[in-house]
């Protein structure tokens, strides 16, 4: 038994002696926040994303690689509002890293700095996967990105004071370019106002709110509940009076329900990138909105 202990202690000592990297280590729950941290942090940060655009962020598992990443992180940047409730608490408890626990400076929740939409007045699991703090998919409105950028730049400077000037400068540059880009998107998105759409999951509340699209229905009968043939038939019947122009889904969504409905209605399915990496053009946040606006305009004409 003593021998076993000695072997274990030896391994532990060896691993503990490994050199730490110099840059501020950031674990971003979603790709959009990873991209934002890269834009604000430049070479001063090392970023690791917990999820990709191909993954449903509600259903991610607390994989060992993520525990290892949480262990080393100086800053955790997540959407919050219980979006990551299914896996983030496990990561935080297993990683043994108090720097990124809720309440610590290294814990950053993007949803805390924006105005939440769809805050439920009634919280009941019979209503599906409802988020008591409101719809957590805040990244689909560029105004929210700017608000998060403002708060995140302050937080980065707070955690990493030696590089504070760098964060401030990159933030000023990002905010200026973002405002210019937003004016462009909003000018181009004018024809979208009032266009009726059906969504896969209630993931686009902020996107629809921004240029003024109308959500007529959702493929998922309740958030997080898979559609059945009966629920799709009921949706189809309900759309007869107010036919939508398109069906919107995220890159990670299962496409079968939306394809079926699109075939019945003779309207296109728009696969939106939803986050950075969700399409070929969405390589950064600017590309994400360029592509999103173009894809929506393509069906508005």
């Amino acid at each position: 038994m003593n021998r076993i202990f000695r072997v274990f202690l030896g391994c532990a000592a060896l691993l503990a002696a490994l050199p730490a990297t110099a840059a501020l280590q950031v674990l971003a729950c979603e790709p959009e926040w990873g991209a934002l941290v890269r834009a604000l942090g430049g070479a001063d940060v090392g970023v690791r994303e917990a999820t990709t655009a191909r993954q449903d962020v509600h259903r991610v598992q607390a994989r060992p690689s993520l525990i290892a990443a949480a262990r080393r992180a100086d800053l955790l940047v997540c959407s919050g509002a219980e979006l990551e409730i299914g896996w983030l608490p496990v990561l935080l408890r297993q990683a043994g890293n108090p720097r990124i626990l809720p309440g610590a400076p290294g814990y950053f929740e993007a949803a805390a700095v924006v105005n939440m939409l769809e805050v439920p007045t009634r919280v009941d699991r019979a209503d599906g996967d409802v988020h008591p703090d409101g719809n957590p998919h805040i990244q689909t409105d560029p105004h929210n990105i700017l608000k998060v950028a403002d708060a995140l730049a302050v937080r980065l400077a707070e955690i990493d004071p030696p590089n504070a000037t760098g964060y401030a400068a990159r933030h000023a540059d990002f905010a200026r370019r973002w405002r210019v880009a937003m004016t462009g998107w909003e000018t181009r998105a004018r024809p979208l106002a009032g266009m009726g759409v059906v969504v896969q999951h209630k993931a686009f509340a902020y996107l629809l709110h921004w240029p003024g699209l109308r959500e007529i229905g959702a493929i998922e009968p309740k958030p997080g509940i898979e559609p059945s043939s009966a629920s799709l038939a009921a949706l189809l019947a309900g759309l007869a009076t107010d036919p939508p122009r398109a069906i919107l889904r995220a890159a990670y969504d299962d496409g079968r329900g939306s394809e079926w409905l699109a075939g019945k209605l003779g309207i296109p399915v728009v696969v939106l990138p939803f986050t950075v990496g969700g399409s070929e053009r969405a390589t950064d946040l600017f590309g994400l909105f360029d592509d999103t606006v173009d894809r929506l305009l393509a069906v508005a004409r």
Binding site: F5, F8, C11, A12, L15, A16, L18, A20, P64, S65, I67, A68, R71, R72, Q94, A95, G96
Partner: peptide, 15 residues
């Protein structure tokens, strides 16, 4: 007592 190593690979030792 458990300890997670600060490595890219997840390594956890404990007793």
């Amino acid at each position: 007592l458990s300890w997670v190593a600060p490595t890219e690979l997840f390594i956890e030792l404990g007793g």
